[in-house]
C-alpha cells in the first residue's frame, strides 16, 4: 500500500501534459508544409510567424496566471482593445500626450479592468465566466465611443514598439514574450504569491481553510492579466498603425485555445509557460502554413477547432487511469 505510483515528476512532469502530443503534431505539420510550400521555410516567413503571435503571446501570459488560480478571463480581447484605442486617441495629432504617460495610462486602464473583474468575482461572488463575459461586452462597448475618430499612430516610439527586428531577424515582440514568460515562471515558482496561486487553483476550499488570503491573490491574478492586456493593446496599435474599436475582437478564443493546448488545466492548479510557449508557436505555424497553402478560411477554422478537441482528447485518454481515482 505504501508503494506509491510515481510516473513523471519534476521537469518530466510536462510529459503528463498535452505538450508531447502537440510536438508530435507540430513535426508532422512542419514536414507537410515545408514539402508542399517553398515559401514556408524561409527566414522572411518565419520572422513573420513570430511577429504575428506577439499579441496572443502577451495575452496568454496573463490568462495563464488567472487560469492556474482556477479563474477564467474572457475580457482580455476587449481590455486590450480599450487600452489600444485610448492610447491611440492620446497619441493623435492635436492631443499628443507624452509617450511615457500614454504607456502609464494604458497600463492603468488594463489593471483597473482586472481589478474590477477580480472584485466582482471574489467580493460579489459571481462566476468568473459570467463576470468576464459581461465585462467583455461592456469594455468593447466603451471602445466604440471613439469609433468615429479613426486615430492613426504617428508616434515613432510606439510604431517601433511592436515592429522592430533585432539584428534584422529576431522580432523584439518575441523577446517581450520570452521575458514575460520567464519572469512569470520564476514568480510562480519562487514567490509566496505563486505558491498560493497554485494552492488556490488546486483546492480553493483547502486554501481558505489554511488561512491563505484567497480573495487578494485572485484579484491580483486578474490585475496581472489586465496588465498584459494593456501591453497587448499597445502592440496592436503599434503593429496595425492605428486605433480601431474592434481590435482584439475574438482574441479570447484564440488565446484560450493556446493556453489549454499548452497544458494549463481549466479549473486550475496546473500549468507551465513552456507548454504555453510551444502551443503558441505551433498554433501560429499551422495557421501560417495553411495560409501559404491557400487553405480557405472556413477550413482553417475547422482545422484549429479540431486540433483543440483532438489534442485534449488524446490527453484525457492518456491520463484516464490517473483521473479514475476521483
Amino acid at each position: 500500500m505504501e508503494k506509491a505510483v510515481k510516473k513523471y515528476s519534476g521537469f518530466l512532469s510536462f510529459l503528463r501534459t498535452p505538450t508531447p502530443t502537440l510536438i508530435g503534431i507540430y513535426i508532422v505539420m512542419m514536414l507537410l508544409f515545408s514539402l508542399t510550400s517553398d515559401k514556408f521555410l524561409t527566414i522572411q516567413n518565419i520572422k513573420g510567424i513570430y511577429n504575428n503571435f506577439a499579441v496572443f503571446g502577451i495575452l496568454a501570459a496573463g490568462v495563464t496566471v488567472v487560469m492556474i488560480g482556477g479563474g477564467f478571463d474572457l475580457a482580455i480581447g476587449s481590455t486590450a482593445g480599450l487600452a489600444g484605442i485610448v492610447s491611440s486617441v492620446l497619441l493623435m495629432k492635436g492631443i499628443e500626450v507624452a509617450t511615457p504617460w500614454v504607456f502609464l495610462i494604458a497600463i492603468a486602464i488594463g489593471c483597473t479592468v482586472g481589478l474590477i473583474n477580480g472584485l466582482i468575482i471574489t467580493k460579489v461572488g459571481i462566476n468568473p465566466i459570467i463576470t468576464t463575459l459581461g465585462t467583455l461586452a461592456i469594455f468593447r462597448g466603451v471602445c466604440y465611443f471613439w469609433a468615429d475618430l479613426n486615430p492613426r499612430v504617428y508616434n515613432v516610439f510606439v510604431q517601433n514598439f511592436g515592429r522592430i527586428y533585432l539584428g534584422n531577424v529576431f522580432p523584439i515582440t518575441t523577446l517581450y514574450i520570452i521575458i514575460a514568460f520567464v519572469a512569470l515562471t520564476l514568480i510562480l515558482k519562487f514567490t509566496r504569491f505563486g505558491r498560493d496561486l497554485f494552492t488556490i487553483g488546486g483546492n480553493e476550499t483547502l486554501a481558505r481553510l489554511a488561512g491563505i488570503p484567497v480573495d487578494r491573490i485572485k484579484i491580483l491574478s486578474y490585475v496581472i492579466s489586465g496588465f498584459f492586456c494593456s501591453v497587448a493593446g499597445l502592440l496592436l496599435i503599434s503593429q496595425l498603425g492605428s486605433g480601431r474599436p474592434e481590435y482584439g475582437t475574438g482574441a479570447e478564443l484564440e488565446v484560450l485555445t493556446i493556453v489549454v493546448l499548452g497544458g494549463v488545466v481549466v479549473g486550475g492548479g496546473r500549468g507551465n509557460y513552456l507548454g504555453v510557449f510551444i502551443a503558441l508557436i505551433i498554433i501560429q505555424t499551422i495557421t501560417n502554413g495553411m495560409v501559404l497553402l491557400n487553405v480557405p478560411v472556413f477550413l482553417r477554422m475547422v482545422v484549429k477547432g479540431a486540433l483543440l478537441v483532438l489534442v485534449i482528447a488524446i490527453d484525457a485518454f492518456r491520463n484516464k487511469r490517473h483521473l479514475q481515482l476521483y
Binding site: D196, F198, T199, L206, A210, G269
Partner: peptide
Amino acid sequence: KIEGLALMMGVKENITLANI
C-alpha cells in the same frame, strides 16, 4: 480530499502551505 489537501501538489507544498 476536499478540505485538507491540494491533491495535485507535493507533500512538501502541502505541509508548508498554511504557514508559508
